[in-house]
Write a protein that binds this DNA or RNA. Structure first.
Lengths: 149, 149
DNA sequence: GTCGTTGCAAACCATTTGCATTAAT
DNA sequence: ATTAATGCAAATGGTTTGCAACGAC
């Protein structure tokens, strides 16, 4: 739970921004999950705590919070997503259930340097997206197979 | 230029699909560039050759061609993009000009196996997204600095 | 001739914006 | 008191869909 006074409030204030109730709760909702929610998912969650909030406010705050570095904005195949985890990390997308999981960052400094040398580009950052079948879907697949026998 | 008869036409026919003029030219347009065009960019290009074509046809074909494996569908921060290069490869996004460049695939089998072991997920594929400043933007930046002196 | 595909227009849906009002500082 | 932020409603813009006509096979 983000307090009304604290590092978040101060950082915002220093930039002429205010920690309003909707803003505080929106950051709260996104930080509380690792499911990379969409704006409308956040909205649905938020309304439980703040029934009069508008979807426009959710959008405005998600973008603003991302711009200020409190959240990460991600473009998924299914639209805009928000990530409360701002640490460096990679992602794993389950091709079966489509869920996106956080995974600890890979040490891919090798490839990074290689790209720089090959292309003359200045490589500042990188993310790896892994694709496959998550543990739950593997189990389900296995069970289904067993049942078919 | 994709011929009316050839591997593409045959693969499509085998799946009950037809190689129509719009479809042929759409695949052509996307394959002719490495700029990861959006639907409307493809549309603009296509109309030069087929003035009566509709945007709906472009969308329908891009999705269908991607579903059939002739193109890759990519979600960029600026919407849906299509990639005519279906070989395994990674991407480099210039943080200055926003362009996305293809880069040869990195040998990241190490990280891949590591993720599998750590998470119990079955990792089938992965893509690396690199971010930084491309050669053109670096040069421009350098020139601007030189001019400022 | 069959049936997948097209063009057109309307529908859809996520996201954004204008504006009068509210609330954080 | 000042002015950023909100709720609401309307607008926007990219993407999809229904349907009659068309065209690949």
């Amino acid at each position: 739970m983000i307090p009304k006074r604290g590092p978040v409030a101060e950082t915002l204030r220093a930039r002429g921004l205010r920690l309003t109730e909707p803003r505080r709760l929106i950051l709260d909702v996104v930080r509380a999950t690792d499911a990379h929610p969409s704006a409308s998912t956040v909205y649905r969650q938020l309304r439980k705590r703040l029934p009069r909030v508008s979807l426009a406010t959710v959008y405005r705050n998600l973008r603003r919070l991302a711009a200020e570095g409190f959240l990460l904005e991600r473009a998924g195949m299914d639209g805009l997503r928000f990530d409360g985890n701002i640490e460096r990390h990679d992602h794993f997308t389950c091709l079966t259930c489509r869920r996106v999981f956080d995974v600890p960052p890979a040490q891919a400094l090798g490839p990074r340097r290689r790209v720089a040398i090959r292309t003359g580009f200045e490589v500042l950052d990188h993310r790896i997206e892994f694709y496959g079948v998550c543990a739950g879907c593997r189990r389900r697949r296995r069970d289904r197979r067993a049942a078919a026998v």
